[in-house]
Simulated assay, not measured.
Amino acid sequence: MTTPPSLETIKRAPKALLHDHLDGGLRPATVIDIAGQTGYDGLPATDVDELALWFRTASHSGSLERYLEPFSHTVAVMQTPEALHRVACECVEDLAADAVVYAEVRFAPELHINRGLSFDAVVEAVLAGFADGEKAAAAAGNPIVVRCLVTAMRHAALSREIAELAIRFRDRGVVGFDIAGAEAGYPPTRHLDAFEYMRNNNARFTIHAGEAFGLPSIQEAIAFCGADRLGHGVRIVDDMDVSGDGSVRLGRLASILRDKRIPLEMCPSSNVQTGAVASIAEHPFDLLARTRFRVTVNTDNRLMSDTTMTREMALLVEAFGYGWTDLQRFTINAMKSAFIPFDERLAIIDEVIKPRYAVLIG
């Protein structure tokens, strides 16, 4: 008889992760260690457990803007090549230990130049850290493939430069581009030249949209910017009507999102912390999954949410009663939506994900 998904058994399941922020996933001990080495004295706590609790508590703010405030501390300790390399390497090791077999980890180079690093030097340090993390994970028996997304902050005016950076490093581990930050007042259309540059270079990009802002954010990301994926996208439910008998009617925007199979990078715990949804039980993930949108499970910020891919999946299992076939579908959804070439995606699906899930499904 197949063992039902539990926190312990889910940990063994192979996972694909599309939405994880490098500066939101540091180990608390690393934050304290680098702060001591670099002379940063702004940490709210210097005990590992107290600092971890502070990040988790401060991030549970009810708004995206306040949720982003604790990042000032993690970014502050990521200003040297050595620190960036270490954080990137540890990120890979932590994901691999959680049975993540493929991950796209994103970060904003413009936030890491306060000590004089160039954009190129920042990206080189992170990519070297990812490569060393992959080697360490493989040696530990947890092979993983990690690729990078470079992010531009939507309130700034550097998106075209960051898009050019993505293309410059496209054959060295950077597989896409993203914009992030506070949504209200900073629509994605402010960055049309960056998205046009990516399209002109046959490159892929995702856009944070429909998290703290409503349908107009999603409409712009899809119709005007041409996003390949949406970061979060939870507010697409505002274009869906659920009848008393459970039937669902999709509006025009929701229909095109589903029809075009545009992936939704959903981050349940983070969405509760920012106030995008009231609770995991009220998260639209299940409604979107049942109506066959291409939903994926993601961590967003592992430090801020005190989470892992295992925990995010377990929360969904507890809330919605998912079984192994559901978790396999969400994992394959993510792998299908990755920004690496088709043959590489297919190899991970056919040679890693499906065989390992076959054992779990029984």
Rank of each mutant, 00 (worst) to 15 (best):
H191F: 10
A319F: 06
I236P: 15
K15R: 14
S159N: 07
I207L: 14
G116F: 15
M304G: 12
Q273G: 07
T30Y: 06
L303P: 11
V352S: 06
R356E: 14
E50F: 02
V146Y: 00
R258A: 07
G323P: 09
P284Y: 10
A97C: 02
V123E: 06
A13Y: 00
D98Q: 06
R204C: 07
M309Y: 07
F213E: 15
I256L: 15
G141Q: 03
V77I: 14
G244R: 13
E164W: 02
A319C: 07
L7M: 12
G275L: 10
L158P: 00
H73I: 04
S6I: 10
K135E: 09
V234H: 12
E164K: 05
L215C: 05
T189A: 03
G133M: 03
Y40N: 06
L111I: 01
D98N: 01
F339G: 11
A128P: 08
A152E: 01
A35H: 01
P70H: 03
N298S: 11
A209D: 12
P44G: 02
T9F: 05
D94K: 03
E50Q: 10
L253C: 07
Y357K: 01
R252E: 13
L257G: 13
V175R: 07
T331I: 04
Y357A: 02
A29I: 05
E282F: 09
V122C: 07
E65Y: 14
Y357R: 04
I348W: 08
L215Q: 00
R172C: 11
V175A: 06
A184G: 15
A203R: 02
V75W: 04
H73P: 02
D286M: 09
L68N: 02
I113N: 12
A128S: 15
V297Q: 11
A289I: 01
I167K: 08
D259Q: 13
E196N: 10
E104H: 12
S305H: 05
A278I: 05
E265Q: 13
A281L: 15
L7R: 13
L250W: 00
F213R: 12
S337Q: 01
